[in-house]
Simulated assay, not measured.
Amino acid sequence: MIHHKLDMGEESEEPYTLIAIHSSEEAYKVAYLINQYLNTRFKRRRVDIDFSYEGMMITFPIFDFVDELNYSQYYLFANKCRIAEASLQSSGGLFSEIGSEKDHFLLPEFKKVDYFLKIYSDFENVSLQSLVSQINNLKQIVSAYVVETDNIKSKNNLIFD
């Protein structure tokens, strides 16, 4: 009997660029600022990026923009989600609630990054140096830089569709 073996090699992955953004502003404000100064039209998706972790649902806001003229697709998303966890303790009273906040990260290897800008482009139409420079010129942005995607361990968290 003849056996056929399919070798898929590495997973076929669309090339993308990832820009890390450090800012203390809220996600909607970062999207607004980028829209205002970079001539984009980011809109928040109806459904956020969500993960189930230890019985809790963790959500990260995501904004997207399709540039049909340059055949590019942009995603702006938060890397950090802060969840308030409540725990009950018996302290002589009826109930005593002690709350603690815990941060969860979409890409845990980049815990200091607040937001990411993910860019899919079929062509080299997007000038990364110019884009990063324009983002860095915004006074509410502390810094922005390109991240090497080969070093990312949790690449599966970057699949949005």
Rank of each mutant, 00 (worst) to 15 (best):
25 E>A: 14
109 E>W: 10
38 L>Q: 05
159 I>E: 04
110 F>C: 00
80 K>E: 04
148 E>L: 10
25 E>I: 09
95 F>W: 10
116 F>N: 14
126 V>C: 02
12 S>V: 10
77 F>S: 13
153 K>G: 00
74 Y>T: 11
43 K>L: 07
160 F>N: 03
150 D>A: 13
120 Y>D: 06
50 D>T: 12
87 S>P: 00
74 Y>D: 06
130 S>M: 14
11 E>W: 08
12 S>T: 09
103 D>W: 09
20 A>Y: 03
33 L>P: 00
61 P>Y: 05
14 E>C: 08
120 Y>Q: 06
47 V>S: 12
37 Y>C: 11
81 C>D: 03
67 D>F: 08
87 S>G: 03
41 R>T: 15
90 S>A: 10
131 L>A: 03
4 H>K: 01
10 E>N: 12
1 M>E: 02
85 E>F: 04
95 F>C: 05
159 I>F: 11
54 E>M: 02
127 S>Q: 11
73 Q>V: 10
137 N>R: 13
38 L>D: 00
145 Y>G: 01
149 T>L: 14
92 G>P: 04
140 Q>G: 09
91 S>Y: 05
147 V>D: 09
60 F>K: 13
131 L>G: 02
97 E>D: 00
95 F>N: 14
97 E>T: 06
126 V>L: 04
105 F>W: 06
121 S>L: 00
59 T>K: 14
155 K>I: 10
128 L>Q: 01
15 P>Q: 15
91 S>A: 05
152 I>N: 02
8 M>T: 07
14 E>M: 13
56 M>A: 05
39 N>S: 14
121 S>I: 02
80 K>T: 06
86 A>L: 07
57 M>K: 12
54 E>L: 04
139 K>W: 03
144 A>K: 13
79 N>V: 01
111 K>I: 03
127 S>A: 12
128 L>S: 08
78 A>H: 05
81 C>H: 15
143 S>W: 12
83 I>H: 10
154 S>P: 00
98 I>Q: 01
107 L>T: 04
100 S>Q: 12
36 Q>L: 10
79 N>K: 13
160 F>G: 12
73 Q>M: 15
42 F>L: 11
38 L>F: 10
103 D>K: 12
25 E>G: 06
58 I>S: 07
12 S>R: 09
24 S>L: 09
141 I>V: 06
123 F>A: 09
143 S>C: 08
56 M>P: 02
115 Y>V: 03
148 E>K: 10
134 Q>I: 10
145 Y>D: 02
72 S>H: 11
39 N>E: 01
83 I>M: 06
8 M>E: 04
92 G>S: 07
94 L>W: 05
55 G>N: 08
157 N>P: 11
116 F>I: 15
148 E>W: 07
1 M>S: 04
